[in-house]
Nucleic acid binder design. Structure first.
Length: 207
DNA sequence: GTAGAAGCGTCGCCTGGGTG
DNA sequence: CACCCAGGCGACGCTTCTAC
């Protein structure tokens, strides 16, 4: 497709461009992460992500850990986050550790796979953090638990989009909800209730 | 195990002096 | 005056450390 000049910046219904789709696949399939991701990553990874927070324009170059972690946060929105919301949890450093462990070292060096490092990036870029280079990418919902800052906008296909307008809160957890083990009605009801609370909270925080 | 400050090392930019 | 280069300096990414 790339040889035929496919536009790699186009996004699907989930808000994913080709690069994020590849990351998503890598998060769910170890073999893909180990064998295929590196080559595809180099081809599809954009030079940077442009974001806007509090009226400030920030460019995240692709060599930054923040670039990778924001991308992974987007990817984990539908899968890992979806599973954690019903338990009142969000994305934790451990999620990054698990996912990154499968990534080849030449893509992500060992130092970037360690828990304390990941944790320090999350905390450094927390909305209310005081660090000099805080890019306000994440919102801490409770100790060690983060989501993407709802006030953040991303430049996609040439337009500024609020992050939770790009990602679809309606589709949170859509993947695992359709697994057979969740088909019992009472469980589904509980899960759907907490997912709805989460969506309401997101829409409140976005304003 | 997390939060976040402090420390450390690298890199690129700026500047001033030397050279032709 | 143009050019080069070394040294200084600040910005920044990453690591380390301490308190919790």
């Amino acid at each position: 497709l790339m040889e035929r000049d496919a536009d790699t910046e186009k996004v699907d219904n989930a808000g994913f461009n080709a690069f994020l789709i590849a990351l998503d696949e890598a998060c769910r399939d170890e073999k893909y992460a180990a064998r295929k991701l590196a080559a595809i990553y180099e081809k599809l990874s954009p030079d940077s992500i442009s974001i806007q927070v509090d009226g400030k324009l920030v460019k995240l170059d692709n060599h930054l850990m923040e670039f990778l972690m924001l991308s992974l946060m987007m990817v984990m929105f539908y899968t890992r986050l979806g599973q954690k919301v019903p338990m009142d949890n969000a994305i934790e450093s451990g999620d990054f550790v698990e996912v990154l462990a499968k990534f080849p070292n030449r893509l992500v060096p060992d130092r970037r796979k360690k828990r304390p490092y990941i944790s320090s990036i999350l905390s450094k870029n927390e909305v209310d953090g005081q660090d000099r280079y805080n890019r306000k990418l994440f919102l801490r919902v409770k100790r060690g638990n983060y989501i993407i800052n709802p006030k953040l906008s991303v430049r996609v296909e040439g337009e500024w989009r609020k992050i939770y307008d790009l990602l679809s809160p309606e589709m949170v957890a859509y993947r695992f909800i359709h697994e057979p083990r969740f088909n019992r009605e009472r469980v589904m009801h509980q899960i759907n209730t907490s997912l709805q609370l989460f969506r309401d909270e997101i829409s409140r925080l976005t304003k």
